[in-house]
């Protein structure tokens, strides 16, 4: 007989059957001062993130900065390669590939725009994709809420509110009593 390791508590989940149920529960949990809690719902519930007090993501700002970086990088690259002519430390002459293309000026901003545009889009798009993954801690191969069989219904017809044990206000007995006041269908204990 294998010896069971002592189980560590991940958190407590309250089960709700309706969207108003979880919506108002989320408001109360937020107002009670909990920070580490989450809602598991089978479909997007409008306004739930506001009820939970979830802040706007900073992803747009990161993406904007990445776009600006891409734009500047593209401009520098093109100006450097096309029309640069400087003496580095006054000794080493550095000259770009000064191709004369149908008599256009070497420093022709109109020709630089498409590349600058594409680089802006490329930097922004890659940052958006990978930024989303990183901010959401993805890919994630294991999550404690995936383990309990009852929580599988979060993909079907049940709404769960999970208060995690790492929350500074988490005292097991108090949280359990508090969750009871929200009148859930049931309260489930989640192992880490």
């Amino acid at each position: 007989m294998s010896q069971e390791r002592p189980k560590k508590l991940y958190g407590l989940a309250a089960e709700f059957t309706t969207t108003p149920g979880i919506y108002h529960a989320a408001e109360k949990v937020k107002d009670a001062g909990f920070r580490w809690f989450d809602c598991l719902v089978p479909f997007p519930v409008h306004g739930l993130d506001r009820a939970m007090g979830v802040k706007m993501t900073i992803l747009p700002i990161i993406v904007f900065c990445a776009g600006v970086t891409g734009f500047i990088a593209a401009c520098c690259l093109q100006i450097f390669t096309n029309s640069l002519e400087v003496d580095l430390w006054a000794l080493v002459p550095v000259v770009g590939y000064q191709f004369d293309v149908s008599g256009k000026p070497l420093l022709g901003p109109a020709a630089f725009v498409p590349v600058a545009f594409e680089m802006t889009v490329l930097f922004s798009a890659l940052t958006a994709v990978f930024g989303t993954l990183i901010l959401n801690k993805l890919p994630m191969f294991y999550h404690p809420t995936l383990k309990h069989p009852a929580l599988a219904r979060a993909t079907d017809d049940r709404f769960f509110l999970v208060i995690e044990a790492r929350d500074p206000k988490f005292v097991r007995s108090e949280v359990e009593a508090f969750l009871h006041t929200l009148e859930p269908e049931s309260i489930i204990e989640l192992d880490a």
């Binding site: 149908s102 256009k104 109109a110």
Partner: peptide
């Protein structure tokens, strides 16, 4: 606006 401008600028 830019697409129109650039093609005309390039073709000259």
């Amino acid at each position: 606006a830019f697409s129109q401008y650039m093609l005309i600028w390039y073709a000259n």
